[in-house]
Design a binder for these strands. Sequence first.
DNA 1: CTGAAAGCGCTTACAG
DNA 2: CTGAAAGCGCTTACAG
Lengths: 335, 335
Amino acid sequence: MEKEDGRDITIADVADALGVSKTTVSRAISGKGRIGKETRERVLEYIEEHDYKPNAIAKGLAQSKTYNLCVVMPRDYEVVDWNFFQRCLFGIQETAETVGYDILLTMCRMNDISSLERIVDNHKVDGVVLMRTFLEDAQIEFLQQKGISFVVTGSTNYENVIQIDHNHRSACRELTSILLMKNLKRIALVGEDEGYVVTQSRLIGFREAYRQAGEKLDEELLFLNPENRVRIDKAVNEILERDVDCILCMDDAVASRVLKALRQRHVKVPQDVRVASFYDSTILENHVPSITSLSFDAKELGRVACRMLLDLVEGLEVSEKTLLPYEVVLKESTK
Amino acid sequence: MEKEDGRDITIADVADALGVSKTTVSRAISGKGRIGKETRERVLEYIEEHDYKPNAIAKGLAQSKTYNLCVVMPRDYEVVDWNFFQRCLFGIQETAETVGYDILLTMCRMNDISSLERIVDNHKVDGVVLMRTFLEDAQIEFLQQKGISFVVTGSTNYENVIQIDHNHRSACRELTSILLMKNLKRIALVGEDEGYVVTQSRLIGFREAYRQAGEKLDEELLFLNPENRVRIDKAVNEILERDVDCILCMDDAVASRVLKALRQRHVKVPQDVRVASFYDSTILENHVPSITSLSFDAKELGRVACRMLLDLVEGLEVSEKTLLPYEVVLKESTK
DNA sequence: CTGAAAGCGCTTACAG
DNA sequence: CTGAAAGCGCTTACAG
């Protein structure tokens, strides 16, 4: 509702029109504080009729709150799976919305956190969720020093950080175990970057599966050197020379390149070699043959993370580490 | 900088410490209004030293501004290319940031605009960019009625809407022309949804190319019926019966399904039939053979859109329709 | 149950 | 060139 001068009506206008005080109107809206049932109804009715909408900014100022949550997305070109972040973001937004919070989105290149700093310093948000962190993470250090509420989706080695993640270690252990049980003993593990905690978790899970199965892991089949970055091709050559049963990829970006390399060499999947990925993304969605992989519910991750951040903002106790379940999805590529 | 009680220091603290008025401090910071050079420097120095940061919320309230822009992303599962929106979003965020604006992100399912309504009604943003619109668009109607500044990325038939788009019509005309010049006369056009303006533009460009080339278009080769939605497969069968030179797909999601269908039928691309898409996305990025398509710079679209919205918010004149260039990228699939 | 008043942290005419 | 004061639109002790 607008007044003649083009401004929206305020709580003061409502109060005037009804011959009550602003306090009363405020109480009727918020439901806080004692107020007569009848007065409240009168106010509510008037508000409804005249389409009054509270100004969230003013409310925020008075309460020293913003009702905004900052989510920091990664922004490099190297990101494996945008879609995952996308879905996670949806989960966050969806649950934030249900309690009247909005999402202030920003990006973070490597360790340039200027944008995050500006948003936090300017008091534009009540809390933040970091969608990706590094082993050495400027975002975490900044937020901890500022003392602002935040959670991390994914895992980190930093202390006292609320983190929500899928159980990658256990997931990778399970997938590897299944492969071993299928009598695929010689598994080559290909991955590009050890700079993330998740990569380490995956590797640990991989090793655990071998140990549990009582099988010996051939360290010669581990291709984790970051120098392989552009040379997956070369790695594939070496792998093929070493007589492997299966190629396990750290993620789909890697898997995609491995598959391409195999195709070029006319190596058939799964006949000549099996392939599986520790990660499922849309990259391989339409791949023929379909690729065995782990499946994670990104949206649920977002939902849980957001809920926890909201609790944190409200001053509630929140457990430091939450692990979400996963699924192993067996497809043609490991038949 | 924090005070003992945990609150951040305010303009009043600075004023007190320096023995000047809040007015003066405010002026020193904003650069507005007359102020002595020396006093300004004193203030600035103190601020720097004590790491004072203005409270954007308070500033916003005083100025009736928020320094936030709302970006509305589509949220259906049917969206063709998330990546495009992603990159566009990056462009928007990037340019907003340079002038101290932040992005409030929300999603819009089909025509459920409740989330957008809440954000606008609560005065949480100064303007909005709609990333996708429908022929009948609740978002546009709502924003127009509210009289709030907004721009649209993409095209719409609504009047008086600032829109920034790639020149799809001309792009599709050019790609089609090139195919015709390669003597690929019998081109089947496959698309799923006519509910968007862009689909119409593409179709127009397609027809124009035929007209310009003086070739007759076989209407039997147009597969645009939404009923094909799940039946691309069937369409491909019919296409193959009709002796076509090339299959032109409205977008990559369609192209991807068409290619899959061809593969299953052992039809070779480009030997047996050529394939091209009116759109380039990551879906087909690693496809073998590589697919001829149009290429659009999503990030630039975001940048331009944001700049125009900012102008609009500042009350500047802005041209209603802006068309951005494109590229035709010829690849193996039409060799 | 209700209200006057102070306050959230800024900006901005207005006066000097 | 500088400042006192009012105002942005809410909330919230405090008093009645």
